[in-house]
């Protein structure tokens, strides 16, 4: 199971990084979204993964998983939505302001 989680985090990071290195705003935003997923899962997994032990107190639960990373990630998910929304808005603004959706200032950067 650990291997599956780790490989998903790795691939999502790699895809995100590749996309934020593109030259247009839309892939960059998508890339950041992918990196957000990867980060959230990373933080969550740092509390060690285990199936079937949700941190809901009850009399017949044998054990619980670590609730702390979950609380941190929960707010992180919501904040990353806010961040994505701001970025989308900035990308739209830049698109209407400049007439195209390049993320580079000058032509030199674009290959």
């Amino acid at each position: 199971m650990e291997l599956l989680v780790a490989s998903s985090v790795g691939l999502m990071t790699a895809v995100g990084v590749y996309l934020i290195l593109r030259l247009r705003s839309f892939p960059v935003i998508v890339g950041l979204t992918m990196i957000s997923y990867a980060c959230n899962v990373f933080i969550f997994a740092s509390g060690r993964v285990v199936a079937g032990l949700p941190p809901i107190l009850s009399k017949d639960a044998a054990a619980y998983t670590d609730p702390m990373p979950q609380a941190l990630v929960l707010t992180a998910i919501v904040i990353s939505f806010g961040m994505t929304a701001v970025l989308v808005m900035m990308a739209l603004g830049a698109f209407f302001e400049a007439g195209d959706d390049r993320v580079d200032l000058d032509e030199e950067g674009a290959e």
Binding site: E2, V5, A6, V9, G10, T13, V15, V17, A38, R48
Partner: peptide
Amino acid sequence: DWAIAGATGLGTAALIYALMT
């Protein structure tokens, strides 16, 4: 870019795997 992305991904995966095990 693929090289950078691949290295970053591998590094992250290795780190979280090491952490989880």
